[in-house]
Design a protein around this nucleic acid. Structure first.
Lengths: 211, 211
DNA sequence: GAAGAACGGTGCCTTTTGTTACATAAAGCG
DNA sequence: CGCTTTATGTAACAAAAGGCACCGTTCTTC
């Protein structure tokens, strides 16, 4: 019934090298295709399984009153540390997760997490590595906010988007970028207009084109 | 030669409940007393052991050009996630660690880390829990910086210091607080003077007294 | 193709934060 | 005690960022 094979798994999660590990992942996880813009995890929800992403993108964020903070995106071959700790410590999720696009995921039952954590060093390394990576990202974002002005952060944001998706065309609205950077639309519009006038970018409706 | 017993260990690291675990920690770790203001870990250094703190306090921070960012303090019963990942992934440390006071530590050899990660679920839970905790802290600091003005952050900072050390007397200079919050001394002096005038605090040289 | 929604541009003003420069005061020390 | 260092106070100004209002443009949708 699943639209994927063990070979696919090996491509997506190369840290699982042993046949035994792949087999167990294949057998115990539930395959699921989730439509775009679907709320996967609500705040306060208890989790009984951990999502691994095969394809697509999940946006994980936290709500603070009326503002929200982007934590990270979970993409192909990745997992979600907030879910992992919620599972591991049987605690309610403090963040929310929503699919950005149609997303294929594997749901691993909580008891398997405990088991693998002991049994499969590769899995252990995967989770620890994910944590390390997310921590570094957040730290980098943190020091950017502390030490750099908004224009610099905006330029960095655009550059990283461009690198990540290998395109010079950034299909985001000013409003959206403003929310990501924790500021307001007017500020972003002003800065982008300045950059356009300076010839550093071009703009279309809903689209910023880097040089 | 060590100035501590297995019983001490149990008090400091209550997550190690089994005799076997405590025994192995006791036997394999090296006990060390480090004087105040000693640089324990330099940037770029490779680690072959992980510090656990018995008493005292280690300040872990990262340098960005001429600025520095405080990551966290490692205190009694805690360990350092930056060291953990540096050990685990055999990578050079990207941060620095310095003792704040005279500090008693246990140094656990890297190979034990790998072993315990598999063998002792309690240890696994400890490391994951530490990561979760540090991530939450950083996230909280991040959203404070994004959403709150400096005065609010300063008040939060003082309140938390007060809670942490259970005292109304905060023995920090304006300069030091400014560095922690990523701003300048003048700004902090201005705000504190304002708070003093408003009767919310009192000030002595090198000391802020909360009401 | 008309109405409404979403998107972006901009002027004007306020608030917040940073910078520079200098003054005063307390602590440390020979 | 006088000298030096460190900590703090403050004025004056500059720069960064935010808030509000209102506009025109471009999509969507019916």
């Amino acid at each position: 019934m699943s639209a994927f094979s063990i070979n696919d798994l090996h491509d997506v999660f190369p840290f699982f090298t042993r046949e035994e590990e792949l087999r167990e992942l294949y057998d115990s996880a539930i395959y699921k295709v989730v439509p775009s813009r679907t709320l996967l995890i609500r705040e306060g929800q208890y989790l009984n399984s951990l999502p691994l992403v095969l394809n697509g993108s999940i946006r994980v964020f936290r709500q603070y009153e009326d503002r929200e903070v982007l934590l990270y995106y979970v993409q192909r071959g990745e997992t979600c540390i907030m879910s992992l700790t919620a599972c591991f410590f049987s605690a309610p999720s403090q963040s929310q997760a929503i699919t950005e696009t149609e997303t294929e995921i594997l749901l691993v039952p909580t008891d398997k997490i405990f088991e693998w954590q002991k049994k499969f060093p590769a899995w252990n390394e995967f989770t620890l590595g994910t944590f390390k990576c997310r921590y570094e990202e957040l730290l980098s974002a943190f020091s950017d906010v502390v030490f750099q002005d908004i224009e610099t952060r905006l330029k960095t944001y655009l550059r990283e988007y461009s690198l990540k998706y290998r395109t010079k065309k950034v299909p985001l609205t000013h409003e959206l970028i403003a929310r990501e950077l924790g500021t307001t639309r007017v500020v972003i519009s002003r800065l982008l207009k300045g950059m356009e006038t300076a010839g550093k970018i071009k703009q279309r409706r809903g689209m910023i084109i880097l040089q």
